[in-house]
Amino acid sequence: MTAVGLERGRADHDSLLGETRTWPVVVQLARRSVVLITRLPSAFIPSVVFPVFLILAFSGSFNGLRGANAFDNAMSWYAPLAVIQGAAFVGVGAGFSANREIESGFYDRLLLAPAPTVSLLLGPALATVLRALVPLVTVMVVALLGGAAVPGGALGFATLTLAAMGTALIHAFWCLGLAYRFKSQRAAPVMQIGVFVTNFLATAQVPLHLMTGWLHSVARVNPMTNVFRLGRAGWVEDVRWENCWGGVLALAVFISLSFWFAWRGLKRMIP
């Protein structure tokens, strides 16, 4: 180690310190997370492969449900499920990285910085939205190649994107909140199960009118049913506002609640 540089006077010290603003930190954290896709592909590839498998398997296995009046086009019905589920798992990934970083101590570095606390939530949120684009586009392409119809056109793609990104954010904030409380990778199964429970106790597989008993009762009040209706709005027919507003409302409410959950957890971690 050589003794070059650094011989700045104390007076120089404060000139180095600008105001730590939220946005640059958010961008840096998001950029890092996107870069990590290539550095740790094993953590990301499943979030693309799994939804592709999902759409192929469900549309292949349950193609016969057309005869039971479930839908007209299995690909169109299951593409939104695969897109939303894939996005949700990208959101869960934000929780996984937080688990990893809290366990390795790297998170202490973020907590120690004078950066605004909210940037620690908005950074992963921005990253989630960017990363979720990959499975989103991939599944849409697979669906179109597989014969999906999108009667709603561009608006149909937009409403599905909205539903997927919103769901991704809900799971991202929820899983960050869990990570802040568990502070270990033991939280991982809880995070994953959350996606399955919320999605499959809604209209993930079949429309409400086919369901019976307890599942019908649960799915009818599950807000994810509204989100699926929003996502499928332009994929089963023309986009109509009555199919959208419930999902938009559910997303707004649950993004706020999960953000609050994460924020409380984060605040508990830093005095």
């Binding site: 790297f106 570095r109 973020l110």
Partner: peptide
Amino acid sequence: LQDAAIDPLMTGNELLRLQATLQGI
């Protein structure tokens, strides 16, 4: 901190840049 809490997936330069942003430089 103890155990050099550094993300093994990032480069030295990237970590410095991140730290600088976190410190508002």
